Simulated assay, not measured.
Amino acid sequence: MKKRQANDTIKGYFYQFNKTIYEILSQSNQTTKIIVEGIEDIDIKGENINNTIQCKYYSKQSYNHSVIKEAIIYMLKHFSNNKSSNLRYKIYANFKDGQSKLPSSIQLNFFKDNFLTYKEKGTIHKVYEELNLTDNDIEEFMKKIDIDINATDYDTLEANVIELLKKELNISDELVDLYFLKAGSIVKNIAIQETEDKRTITKKQFINLLMDINIILDKWYISKVNKEKYCSLIRKKYFSEHNISPYERFFIIECYENTPISTLKKIANVISNKWSKLSKRTPQPFCPYIIFSNLNENELVSLKQSLHNDHFKFIDGYDFRGAKFSVESITQEANYKNEIQIKILDIKEIDNVLKKINKTKEIYQFYINKKIYDNKNEHHVVIKIDELDDILNII
């Protein structure tokens, strides 16, 4: 029972986030402000709009006036302190059934009795009296509140958001799921910010974040699709080239504690096979750089020794025992003569190496817990994974 309730709660959050995305993308004015968790779940402030929306998802529950009473009372209290405001209050709620209980035209006494009165510990509370509001005040509030208890169901709302994403971003059906996940992740991360300023975003800012090259998601949103589909989406987005350009590519990989050497070797082999060209006929031969983060010195030496034993040719910028790291050494061209398959690099040396290289550079960072490197000057893709084997399924 508890698990079902938790799932329903999480689905309610997703529903609210989807409604937030829909409101952001629906704005005709790119600079209209959307505040997540403002007065209500979603506030919209623009030149000709000033709305606050309470979003509720009760797909397994029948409608009763009491279910939305608390939200209406909260809105009334806000109204009582802001009577001259042009703010419109909106309740957007999805119910299984029972919507016919709410009259299409709500009269004053019905509104007062069913939404502004409650009983607690044997005492009847008339909120409008406690707030010293007249009937005229309540009628004015009623003009400013929209109650929608026939809100779109979960699947339809999600489909509407996906269609808006395709339209606004001009993206294909193949990749829209990836941007949908990122959109939800952006909204979730905005919602947990402490200040209202940081919980505020415009359509223009939102689209810029969506179109940023990084696909940074959290486990909550990755869980919306299965692992196989997630890896497939990332692969289609970044690693589906057939004619690979001779760029200098850097793969930064966050390793977990006691990562098996066999796993690291497998990753090194796959990256080398996919992202290197050393044949004599290749006019601009190249091979990738790999950074295995969080490995201690002994683990790194063991990896290098194992690769060497397999006759896997690599360089690491150290030309002899006791030598200092050499940028010139590690940036030497890989070709059919020296057969260098990968270049193993320490994270602390990456900036020096990037400065040395004049060719086009690409950085792909795979992280499990947190990003370990930032670079806004180069093509830098950041990808969330749950385990290192995900890399094999992605690239």
Results as ranks from 00 to 15, higher is better:
Leu392Asp: 05
Lys324Trp: 09
Glu387Gly: 11
Ser26Met: 13
Phe14Ser: 05
Ala71Gly: 09
Ile253Arg: 01
Tyr74His: 14
Glu139Ser: 00
Lys227Tyr: 00
Asn296Phe: 14
Lys343Pro: 06
Ile347Glu: 10
Ile372Tyr: 11
Phe320Pro: 08
Asp155Met: 09
Asn352Ala: 15
Leu25Ser: 05
Asn51Gln: 05
Ala6Cys: 10
Asp155Val: 07
Lys45Arg: 14
Ala6Phe: 12
Ala6Gly: 06
Val36Glu: 00
Cys255Thr: 08
Arg235Cys: 12
Ser276Ile: 00
Pro288Ala: 10
Asn294Trp: 15
Ala93Leu: 00
Val187Thr: 07
Lys343Gln: 08
Ile149Ser: 00
Glu254Tyr: 12
Tyr74Trp: 10
Asp135Trp: 06
Asp148Leu: 09
Val327Gly: 05
Ser26Glu: 10
Phe250Ala: 11
Asp113His: 11
Asn352Trp: 10
Lys204Ser: 14
Leu354Val: 11
Tyr336Asn: 07
Gln284Val: 13
Lys236Asp: 03
Leu210Ile: 07
Ile291Asp: 02
Val381Pro: 04
Phe180Ser: 05
Glu378Ile: 15
Ala93Ile: 02
Asp148Arg: 14
Ile91His: 02
Ile347Thr: 09
Asn7Leu: 13
Lys112Ala: 03
Asn81Gly: 13
Glu362Thr: 13
Thr195Glu: 11
Gln30Ile: 11
Gln193Ile: 11
Gly317Met: 14
Asn352Ser: 15
Ser85Ala: 04
Asp316Ala: 08
Leu181Ala: 01
Tyr118Gly: 02
Thr117Cys: 00
Glu140Met: 08
Lys237His: 05
Lys265Trp: 06
Tyr238Asp: 05
Phe17Thr: 15
Val301Pro: 12
Tyr74Gln: 11
Gln365Trp: 01
Val381Cys: 15
Asn335Met: 00
Lys313Asp: 07
Phe180Glu: 03
Ile394Glu: 02
Ile124Asp: 12
Glu328Leu: 08
Leu102His: 02
Tyr128His: 03
Asp390Val: 09
Ile39Pro: 04
Lys313Ala: 09
Lys112Asp: 08
Thr123Gly: 08
Lys277Arg: 03
Glu257Ser: 13
